[in-house]
């Protein structure tokens, strides 16, 4: 039971408005941790702090620390390397306006890899892992923005895998895609769990229940509780709020 990520006293505000308060949370290696909670409770902001995207949002103030493999990430001045260790899949699929091949090899290229053989290898590997290879292998030079939404979302996952992340964060990845694709991606995640740690932010309680090992509940910037998924979803919650949310009394 190795702690992959340890969030310590994380407090964040956006334009002076408090969005996360004193979060303490650990993510264990090779687990899927689901983060649930109603809209606007700070789930996305939590992910942005983890991969230090918050550096690029000038309105956001962050305090506390996040340890990756026991080492503080906030202490490092340059956050690029941290984002390479953490893959991020955004809610809406984004195909960069370049070919499918370039989309997947973008991350290794900006990291300095120039060997075309290796790049090709990485691309094929990532596209296969994200279950997109069979659909696009004959048209790798097509511009990625012409793919369908579901395909673009899998491309986003392929891109997130292309820099060999140790942690994969998914932010409500199924919001803009059809149920069939969602199920396929969920299968992929179960596979990926063997090689990396996954943080799954979701607004679908069933998805959290199906996929995750542990579930964390965030409500209005506070971490209400974190526990084994089967406990949380069988009614053994520490907080009444969590139970109400899961039962759909609010949300």
């Amino acid at each position: 039971m190795k702690e992959k990520i340890k969030i310590q006293n994380l407090t964040a505000s956006y334009n002076g408005k408090s969005i996360l308060r004193n979060i303490n949370l650990s993510v264990i290696q090779n687990e899927i941790l689901a983060v649930i909670g109603p809209a606007n409770s700070g789930k996305t902001s939590l992910l942005r702090c983890i991969n230090r995207m918050c550096d690029f949002i000038p309105e956001m103030d962050v305090e506390g620390d996040i340890l990756l493999d026991g080492v503080s990430t906030f202490a490092k001045r340059d956050s690029t390397v941290i984002r390479r260790r953490i893959g991020m899949v955004s809610p809406l699929p984004v195909g960069l306006p370049m070919s499918i091949r370039d989309n997947v090899t973008f991350a290794p290229k900006v990291a300095g890899c120039k060997d075309p053989v290796i790049l090709e290898e990485i691309m094929e590997d990532c596209l296969k892992k994200s279950a997109l290879w069979d659909e696009v292998k004959d048209r790798l030079d097509m511009i990625a923005t012409k793919l369908s939404g579901g395909q673009q979302q899998r491309l986003t996952i392929a891109r997130a895998l292309s820099h060999f992340p140790e942690v994969l964060c998914l932010d409500e990845f199924s919001i803009a895609i059809d149920p069939v694709t969602t199920m396929r991606i969920e299968e992929i995640l179960k596979e990926l769990k063997k090689e990396m740690t996954i943080i799954l932010v979701t607004n679908l309680n069933f998805q959290a229940r199906r996929l995750s090992d542990r579930t964390a509940m965030i409500f209005e910037g506070d971490l209400l509780e974190v526990g084994a998924t089967k406990d949380v979803f069988s009614g053994n919650t520490q907080q009444q709020k969590t139970k109400d949310y899961i039962e759909g009394l609010f949300g």
């Binding site: 984002r83 893959g87 955004s90 900006v110 997130a160």
Partner: peptide
Amino acid sequence: SFREACWNVGAS
């Protein structure tokens, strides 16, 4: 979203 996608994969 294009910019964020790039930042997310570790581009400066």
